[in-house]
Amino acid sequence: MSKSSEVVAGVAIPDSAMAKAATDLVRETETDLLYHHSRRVFLFGALSGERKGLKYDAELLYIGAMFHDMGIMDKYASDTERFEVDGANAARDFLKSYEVSERDVDDVWDSIALHTTPGIPQHKRPTVALVTAGVEMDVLGIGYNEFSDSQREEVCACHPRGLKFKHGILSSFCLGTIRKPETTFGNVKADVLAKMDPTYQRKDFAELILNSPWES
Rank of each mutant, 00 (worst) to 15 (best):
T116K: 00
D93S: 06
I120S: 09
T127P: 05
S216W: 06
H115R: 09
P118F: 13
V105K: 07
D204L: 02
L114F: 02
R40E: 13
G176C: 01
H68A: 15
E28V: 02
I169M: 05
L208S: 04
D24R: 05
E30P: 01
A88T: 03
A46R: 04
E136L: 00
G87T: 13
Y144W: 12
R92S: 15
Q122P: 00
Y144L: 09
I13C: 09
F173M: 15
N145P: 00
H159G: 03
V8S: 03
Y62S: 04
D86P: 02
A157Q: 04
T23H: 15
V11N: 00
M18I: 02
D74R: 13
R152L: 10
D107T: 02
G134R: 04
T80A: 06
P213K: 12
V192P: 00
R51Y: 08
R27Y: 12
M73A: 11
L140S: 03
V85I: 14
D106K: 11
A12M: 09
T183G: 05
C174Y: 15
I178C: 12
I142M: 10
R92Q: 12
R179G: 15
T132E: 12
A17S: 04
E81C: 15
E84V: 09
V139L: 06
R125V: 13
Y98E: 00
I169H: 08
Y98H: 05
I169C: 06
E28L: 12
V85F: 05
R27F: 10
R152I: 15
A113R: 01
L34Y: 05
L163I: 08
G134Q: 11
I209Q: 02
V26N: 02
N211E: 11
S101C: 05
V85K: 02
R202W: 08
R27H: 14
S212E: 03
K75C: 08
H36W: 14
I120M: 11
S97E: 14
N211G: 00
T127C: 08
C158P: 01
V26T: 13
T183Y: 00
G87N: 08
D79Q: 11
F44W: 14
M1D: 11
S148T: 15
